[in-house]
Amino acid sequence: MDMKSLSAETRKRISLRGTGMYAAIAERLREMILEGELPPGAHIDEKTLCEQFDISRTPLREALKTLVTEGHVTHRQHMGFQVAPIDRDEIAAIFEVLHGLEETAGRLAAQRIDDKQMKMLLERHRAMETYHREGKRTAYYRANQKVHQHIVDVAGNPVLSDMYSSLMSKIHRARGAANADVLRWAESLGEHSDILDALAKRDGACLARLLREHSEHTAAEVMKVLDGKSGT
């Protein structure tokens, strides 16, 4: 069988049915949860997932048990499996810290970025524009994260980089849940263009302000979704 001739979804199903099946299924489910495809609090329909992955219920159950131990999924007798809820207050507190980290990173990055790093960031931004144009939301979101981490890393402060990376991992799932807002998606891309312009000009004050505002706008959208107020 020529794997290249198969659709992406078919190749994914074959991969899930291969060696280490339950681990591959757990990885796919983890991705669906982190990217918001399976939103917080959602009931996990085992029958639908078995049909989607073309698998039996046994490896799916093993995968779900793995996610229970990781805290991504909960299980209650007679109620089945459910995507674990998100602690709204913790997410709000993390964002408050992230706003300051973004601002600090902006001031330092504008001073320390070199032409090679700037070129790489522009290439990643162009990839984001392509993903947005093609409607590839998950790919866009991942590229978005890399751009933000890259800017922080360019600041040249390993403590700042580690702290930022750690906190971002804690809000990954919450950001994924809010990633379906089409209007915010377009708005966010525009903000990224302004951020890259300021960085290219080495304007630290402007860059710090734009990064903080961008973080605050993202936080507002995430909190709106977590509060069940998203109407777009």
Rank of each mutant, 00 (worst) to 15 (best):
M3K: 10
S5V: 09
S5R: 07
S7D: 12
A8E: 13
R11L: 09
R13S: 00
S15H: 09
M21A: 11
Y22W: 13
Y22S: 11
A24G: 11
I25Q: 03
I33R: 05
L34R: 14
G41F: 08
G41V: 06
H43C: 02
I44T: 00
I44S: 01
E46T: 13
K47Y: 08
E51G: 05
D54L: 05
I55N: 04
S56Y: 00
R57H: 03
T58W: 15
V68R: 03
E70N: 02
V73N: 00
Q77F: 15
M79Q: 14
M79H: 14
G80V: 00
P85N: 04
D87T: 01
D87Q: 04
F95R: 12
E96K: 15
L98F: 05
E102H: 14
E102V: 06
E103Y: 10
G106D: 12
G106N: 06
A110S: 15
K116F: 14
L121Q: 06
L122W: 13
R124H: 13
H132V: 09
R133P: 15
K136C: 07
T138G: 02
K146N: 07
I151V: 11
V154N: 04
G156R: 07
G156E: 03
P158F: 08
V159G: 10
V159C: 10
S161P: 06
M163Y: 02
S165P: 00
S166M: 08
L167D: 01
S169A: 12
S169D: 14
A177L: 05
A177R: 01
A178S: 10
A178N: 04
A186V: 10
L189E: 06
G190T: 09
G190I: 02
I195Y: 08
I195G: 09
A198M: 07
L199Y: 11
K201G: 10
R202K: 14
H214W: 05
S215M: 13
E216Y: 05
E216G: 03
K224M: 15
L226D: 05
K229L: 14
G231E: 08
